[in-house]
Amino acid sequence: MPDSSLHDLIIIGGGPGGYTAGIYAQRAALKTVLIEKGIPGGQLNNTDEVENWPGTEKISGADLAIQFSQHAAAYDLAVLNREVVGIEPGRNHHTILLDNGEKLTSHAVILATGGSPKKLGIPGEDQNYGRGVSYCAVCDGFFFRNKTVVVVGGGDSALEESLYLAKLAKRVYIAHRRDAFRAGMILQKRVLHEERITVLWNTVLTEIQADAQGVNGVITRNTMDGTTSALATDGVFVFIGFEPNNGLVPAGTKMNANGYVIADEKCETNTPGIFVVGDLKEKYAKQIVTAAADGCTAALAAAHYVENKKSGA
């Protein structure tokens, strides 16, 4: 008798990649469950506006996340709101360990755990998280209305969040370690024409200072001449990239030097039946649309894998 508790596919992570995989898995009639420990959409919920999702000129990240969730619900995708604490690969099936002690088994697994914001690693950062230090302007920008903030970074996220904060704060400083941004030209033009934004080129933060009320200043260093300066500020927003959430990646799975999982064109890892999508996967571009594309590819490949497994091929 077949094991009725055995899933065809378990998806870990409810971002764009995970939900797209869920939609395609349901269309392929796979017995599927998506496990997400937070709210649907993942990092999407920290994005003010999305302007590069095809077919939609502009939409908030939170609204797009809701659309992903609703689309998946229309296909009756089972979603479990729990935290996965471990994965045990097996020859016959893979076992997923949950935070409540429960175990789920599946022929195939798609890892869609994304990434987390990188930290500066300077004095005062960890101590003042939530007291003026933030990694999400959409989440915390309201608390800095008519105040002064410093944004650290020079990529798309840093500039997008700076423009969002400029709607609220009286002054936004962007501290960038180089003399040119890495962000797209449209964002660069908007930032450079925004009166409330001042760019501090060739500048890094070396310390975040605070008093009993929270952050009240930073110490900066010029990367060209080494001079240091003090800058008064009410908040520091850090957008210097992401680190892959690879804590659940099974031992023996190939990763690059930066911790991103290496997968083939089917998004399959070197562990048979374990696939990886989105920001956890080694690839050139990390965008919502590429995460969704990964989800589609991985689900179709997983469906083929499961079909062969069941037929004994």
Rank of each mutant, 00 (worst) to 15 (best):
residue 53 W to C: 10
residue 54 P to V: 05
residue 67 Q to S: 13
residue 253 T to H: 00
residue 237 F to W: 13
residue 307 E to W: 11
residue 43 Q to S: 03
residue 226 G to K: 05
residue 215 V to N: 05
residue 19 Y to S: 03
residue 253 T to W: 00
residue 231 L to V: 02
residue 21 A to E: 04
residue 116 S to N: 14
residue 243 E to R: 14
residue 294 D to P: 08
residue 253 T to N: 00
residue 248 L to M: 02
residue 37 K to G: 00
residue 106 S to N: 10
residue 223 T to W: 04
residue 285 A to Q: 06
residue 66 I to Q: 14
residue 289 V to E: 00
residue 302 A to E: 08
residue 40 P to W: 14
residue 22 G to F: 10
residue 298 A to S: 06
residue 32 T to Y: 08
residue 24 Y to P: 07
residue 2 P to I: 12
residue 177 R to H: 13
residue 182 R to V: 08
residue 286 K to F: 07
residue 309 K to P: 07
residue 180 A to V: 14
residue 268 E to Q: 15
residue 15 G to A: 02
residue 110 I to Y: 09
residue 32 T to N: 09
residue 164 Y to R: 08
residue 276 V to E: 00
residue 312 G to P: 10
residue 169 A to H: 04
residue 134 S to T: 14
residue 27 R to V: 01
residue 191 V to L: 12
residue 238 V to D: 02
residue 138 V to D: 00
residue 89 P to T: 06
residue 167 K to L: 02
residue 123 P to E: 03
residue 80 L to P: 02
residue 310 K to S: 02
residue 176 H to N: 14
residue 42 G to M: 07
residue 214 G to C: 02
residue 15 G to E: 00
residue 117 P to N: 06
residue 135 Y to L: 06
residue 68 F to K: 11
residue 291 A to G: 09
residue 150 V to Y: 04
residue 85 V to F: 01
residue 272 P to E: 05
residue 11 I to E: 01
residue 107 H to L: 07
residue 243 E to C: 04
residue 140 D to S: 10
residue 96 I to F: 02
residue 57 E to D: 07
residue 74 A to W: 04
residue 46 N to S: 15
residue 134 S to Q: 11
residue 59 I to T: 15
residue 81 N to P: 01
residue 123 P to T: 06
residue 43 Q to L: 14
residue 312 G to Y: 09
residue 32 T to W: 03
residue 313 A to N: 15
residue 199 V to F: 08
residue 174 I to F: 12
residue 301 A to R: 05
residue 215 V to S: 12
residue 295 G to P: 11
residue 152 V to T: 11
residue 312 G to V: 08
residue 120 L to A: 08
residue 201 W to Q: 01
residue 97 L to Q: 14
